[in-house]
Design a protein around this nucleic acid. Structure first.
Length: 459
DNA sequence: TGTAGCTTTTG
DNA sequence: AAAAGCTAC
């Protein structure tokens, strides 16, 4: 008989396909700990993520209790808190699933070294990406810098089959998650839009594959439609693993060949997540350093009033304001509108993309350390295989193309709801524009487009 | 996964 | 006159 194995949970808040948890239960008695780490080198979670985390941990504690596993939740420096938990429970082994940021890897490596010195068994597992970044390299041994060859190589890899839910142990009473978290109005508002936790994630995946995926390629760009999977926050917290998504989707493609090409399109978007994790793994700090060095020379404008108008959804450009308000209200924003709002900030407004990235980090429930900065760098042109600098979205044209009847804009920007379709994306053209309770646009799209082309071309 | 300005084609 | 095609940014 062995002692207690401690499972150190991070962004892997699930029971099924959790290799560290499964291995610990095989080993004998298990306990779990989640440490909200305050290490200075780690990026602090944003406000929307803290809300989601609180509820996700509560759901997980109930699930773990059914397996006889207690979950402790603490806040503090990672190494200190982990060794406190080891001492408190007399653990003789510590397991975790790997993470890929540089600071996280260094912290984990230091802890692993200390565990070895102290004679405590330790093991880490692959769990949170399709293929681990160090398994992916081009023919010349370098990290991929272009998505398409990365994706083609990824598809050829043997993607691990997800592990089943581990067998039940003795059910225990769930721990109350111990934190000073207090539900604020904002959290109650977000709560109207989400079911949190592993079971909800699985239901969402199944419903998407059953009912939505066939129309995904055609409808995914239409923000009015709920045509996307909606899995992003569940993936960000590891309530579902990308391997589970991958294999469920492949099984559906086998079972329903008519859906195969749509499923391939969907999975290629999941592939971007792995591509972003590859960037995170190989670079110092994806959230602050341009992946392509020459973009570091761009002279960003300091325009506080414009930035605040952007944050609050008061730019006077309906589809931009709709997106920013959708994010504030629900904790997510439709993907196409993310591209539009980011392009407006980084290009038309020439405001540093890192400011926008930080706002998204704070307000998105799906804020992800690789995807959020990776996608911002993509839009800003400084990322790997990024959008070319001269691609500057026109939010009027984009609105007319992807929200032709104006439903999306009318939902989030009631000030323009009464305008006819032709004007709803450019209310400033309305004869009685001044009478609307809606700001005039904070930038001239044509002039600011020219300015951005100049600034980027100069690099 | 773009836009704008121009030219050419089409009805 | 509008749609479609082409090309620089």
């Amino acid at each position: 008989m062995t002692g207690t194995t401690l499972v150190w949970l991070r962004n892997d808040l699930r029971i099924a396909d959790n290799p560290a948890l499964s291995a610990a239960l095989k080993h004998g008695m298990a306990r779990a700990v989640h440490i909200e780490a305050t290490d200075g080198r780690l990026r602090r979670r944003g406000a929307a993520s803290r809300w989601w985390l609180h509820h996700s941990l509560n759901r997980l504690a109930e699930e773990l209790a059914q397996l006889g596993v207690a979950l402790d939740t603490v806040e503090g420096e990672a190494q200190t808190e982990l060794f406190k938990a080891i001492a408190a429970h007399g653990s003789d082994a510590v397991y975790w699933n790997r993470r890929y940021g540089r600071a996280e890897r260094e912290i984990d490596a230091a802890i692993k070294a200390r565990l070895k010195r102290e004679g405590i068994a330790t093991e880490s597992f692959a769990a949170n990406v399709l293929v681990e970044p160090f398994e992916m390299a081009t023919g010349t041994g370098k990290p991929y810098s272009v998505y398409t060859p990365f994706w083609n190589a990824l598809k050829k890899q043997d993607i691990a089959k997800p592990l089943p839910r581990p067998r039940h142990g003795e059910t225990i009473r769930p721990q109350r998650v111990d934190s000073d978290y207090r539900e604020a109005d904002w959290g109650r508002k977000l709560g109207r839009h989400w079911q949190i936790g592993e079971a909800a994630a699985r239901e969402r995946l199944d419903r998407f594959l059953d009912e939505l995926v066939l129309d995904y390629p055609g409808d995914r760009d239409i923000p009015r439609k709920a045509a996307t999977s909606g899995l992003s926050p569940h993936l960000a917290f590891g309530e579902i693993s990308p391997r589970q998504v991958w294999h469920a989707a492949q099984a559906m493609a086998q079972h329903a060949p008519a859906k195969a090409s749509a499923i391939d399109k969907f999975l290629s978007e999941l592939g971007w997540r792995d591509f972003n994790y590859n960037q995170l793994y190989h670079r110092d700090d994806i959230a602050t350093v341009p992946m392509v060095a020459k973009y570091g020379g761009l002279k960003w404008r300091h325009a506080d009033a414009a930035f605040e108008a952007w944050q609050r959804g008061r730019t006077g450009i309906p589809i931009i304001d709709a997106g920013m308000r959708e994010m504030w209200e629900t904790g997510v924003m439709h993907n196409r509108v993310r591209m539009l709002t980011a392009s407006l900030l980084a290009k038309n407004l020439l405001i540093d993309w890192r400011k926008g990235e930080q706002w998204f980090w704070d307000t998105l429930v799906d804020a992800d350390a690789a995807n959020n900065p990776g996608n911002w760098q993509w839009v800003a042109g400084s990322g790997l295989d990024a959008s070319p600098y001269f691609r500057i979205f026109n939010p009027v044209t984009q609105g007319e193309r992807f929200d032709p009847a104006g439903d999306y804009v009318r939902r989030w920007v009631p000030e323009v709801a009464g305008l006819p379709d032709k004007l709803v994306h450019q209310p400033w053209e309305a004869p009685d524009a001044a009478a609307l309770d809606y700001p005039a646009p904070i930038v001239d799209l044509k002039v600011s487009r020219e300015r951005a082309l100049e600034a980027f071309k100069a690099l």
